[in-house]
Design a protein around this nucleic acid. Structure first.
Lengths: 187, 187
DNA sequence: CCTGTATGTAAGTGCATGCTAACATCAGTC
DNA sequence: GACTGATGTTAGCATGCACTTACATACAGG
């Protein structure tokens, strides 16, 4: 075996993810991916078989990276919300891979849809459980779970959206966002 | 002159917008656009010169369509917010053109960026003025204009985002969204 | 009927794309 | 030092792309 076996894959996956976010599925050409990864184009096909498989695998791993973003209730709702907001802000807004753009691409390129859904499903569950927990504990209003989750995560997505598309807009003030949310949704 | 002169342009612009939202800039090929519009591909080039010009014009008109979405304060904050939410929900979430996807594409395809900025700028101003007005009137908390706007519009974008990307998630309950917002941000 | 204009049809050009084939290199293993 | 496996280099193929050219058709106004 070569020394760099695993590294080659990692570099291809990372380059694929970046280009997918920057340029979209069709804009992430195999030539560009290979160039950014610093390997020959043919290596991409030898290791992943096709562009679709490489990108699907890249999306799957990007989703798995979200595992680190905890959404486990500690008992202190305000602190948990702030931490969650911080954890989600980076991948949505500024992270090199731009989860935001990935999701958009995945919704369009059929080959990626399954990979994204697979990667996101446990995350969605965790967030639902988090809010449901604080509802049962009496800290949040009962009912309307989806609207509530959206009221909390929506502004994070929205801020990323406006920043990416208009290039303007300051970074969201997370403390004030949490405060506004609690004002509207705490029991 | 032909009878259908204006109609040809309109159909091309509409088809271009739909495909841009569905498939992205590169996925919106001139063949597909012409086919959906029901005209010959060569007609597209005769009337708009190039794909880039057609799509830029389509985005410009889509932005102009937002003009109808009023953000003029009437004095009744709650009613205004609800109307605004309703007016924004359709283009963001379900409208055929999917403003959401357009904005994503425009942020990537340099040729469209100017057209989108041009179309969006008056809209952004109107929304800022709307919230600033109710701040001065004492109905909304002073300061933090951007965070506040984001708290209101973010969930609308977020709901569209989750619907489009995951295919799931119910439509946002606008009345409860407005109520939650007022709970957090009214003075 | 004639002319001008908007459209359609058909064919094609040059380029980028995803992907393949053939051969060379280079580092470890035995 | 031969062998193996991962890589690089080069060339190429078929396809789809934006876009063009040339010619035919249809319809309106004079």
């Amino acid at each position: 075996m070569h020394l760099h076996t695993g590294e080659t894959d990692a570099r291809l996956l990372e380059a694929a993810l970046e280009l997918l976010a920057e340029r979209g599925y069709q804009g992430a050409t195999t030539r560009r991916i290979a160039e950014r990864a610093g390997v020959a184009e043919v290596t991409l096909f030898r290791r992943f078989g096709s562009k679709a498989r490489l990108l699907a695998e890249a999306v799957r791993r990007a989703g798995a990276a979200f595992e680190e973003v905890a959404a486990r209730p500690s008992g202190d709702l305000r602190a948990d919300l702030l931490e969650m907001a911080r954890n989600y802000q980076e991948p949505f807004e500024l992270g090199g891979a731009a989860a935001f753009m990935l999701a958009v691409e995945a919704s369009r390129a059929g080959e990626l849809r399954g990979a994204l859904a697979e990667a996101l499903q446990p995350r969605i569950r965790a967030v639902q459980d988090f809010f449901a927990h604080y509802q049962r504990a009496g800290a949040l209003r009962p009912g309307d779970l989806d609207t509530m989750i959206n009221a909390f995560l929506g502004p994070l997505v929205g801020a990323a959206f406006f920043q990416r598309t208009t290039g303007r807009g300051p970074r969201l003030d997370l403390e004030k966002h949490v405060e506004g949310f609690l004002g509207g949704w705490s029991a």
